[in-house]
Design a protein around this nucleic acid. Structure first.
Lengths: 178, 178
DNA sequence: CGTGTCATGTAAGGAGTTACATGATTTG
DNA sequence: CAAATCATGTAACTCCTTACATGACACG
């Protein structure tokens, strides 16, 4: 899976501009994929050149013009190829977990500050996903429901461990003082 | 966080060869970090050149020689700098979740095959982590315990959703046949 | 005698990020 | 009038992966 596959997939539902694609990435699946303008715009140019998508300039009132891209039959067939290819294994890179792993080299205070920050972030993500689920789950495909539920339950699990973990670290801190 | 920080962190506990570092990456935190020989060996050369680590050639019986690296004071100070720097946000890239998101474009059968494969993989990871936790949790630092518990609970959450999800997809499949 | 494990390394290429650059319009 | 939002784009750079290359020894 690369940015090409994801962009084509987005265009399967409806035509979009690069800016809109970026917004959708952030609102729909920031918990399992992300991509910057520096990736999206050059990729749209490449896909157009390869005739997998077509460009249309759309005039807007009170806003700059935008380039709206539409997937072609060739593009749809390319996207289908992706869906039928073997699933790649997940790649996770978590600085937060790495810090916890090396936590012995800093004080409990620092560990607590890491946990607190991550808790705030995870709570926000959890709330976002939960709200989205409540609002749209009746319009979602069964597979999409599973997708969002995995996100929700994973954040929930993380938050539980963080909460319990903060208590245990505070106890360690207390014992240190005695 | 990059490979430099992680390698220095590994060497804080004990001196290691590149090969051993790679093995530890796989056994200790494959669920939140990974790195190939193509990254590790060149990085060790760079770290040695920058005097953050020193190399020692160790002869072995019945095995090839190995280059064992030891962290220097300069290296330790560099690692501390990393630990005090701001925590970077996690980066996740999940082809599996992306497939689920686009599941409407393939049949239920395909979705089920994705779920089954992921279930097998997640179960293996879960079992691995659970066993490691049982074996070593009494020797682990409190922060490390939180780290591994997050991994365990996240896999558990994922497995639960997958199990329930497979049932719901099977029901959809059944309704299709009627 | 072949396969697996131990062990180190390089070169080419891929995929992405960050920083920079621009500019109109809307909202407070 | 400043800041935020909408909108597009490029160039340099970073970091990592894949594939290739080598070779010894162990085990069945």
């Amino acid at each position: 899976m690369n940015s090409q596959d994801v962009i084509l997939g987005m265009l399967m539902k409806r035509s979009l501009s690069g800016y809109e694609i970026k917004q959708l990435f952030e609102s729909l699946f920031s918990y399992f994929y992300n991509s910057s303008y520096g990736t999206i715009y050059p990729m749209l140019h490449r896909l157009e050149k390869e005739e997998l998508i077509t460009k249309e300039n759309v005039l807007q009132e009170g806003k700059p013009n935008k380039n709206v891209y539409t997937i072609t039959d060739k593009g749809k067939s390319q996207f289908t190829d992706y869906l039928l290819s073997p699933v790649e294994s997940d790649s996770v890179k978590s600085d937060f977990l790495m810090r916890l792993y090396f936590g012995q080299h800093v004080g409990y205070e620092k560990v607590l500050s890491w946990l607190t920050k991550e808790q705030v972030h995870a709570q926000k993500q959890f709330d976002d996903l939960t709200e989205k689920y409540a609002l749209y789950h009746d319009q979602m495909h069964p597979a999409q429901i599973i997708c969002i539920q995995i996100g929700i339950k994973e954040y929930q699990a993380k938050l539980e461990v963080i909460r319990e973990g903060m208590v245990s670290i505070q106890q360690c801190q207390q014992e240190e003082r005695d």
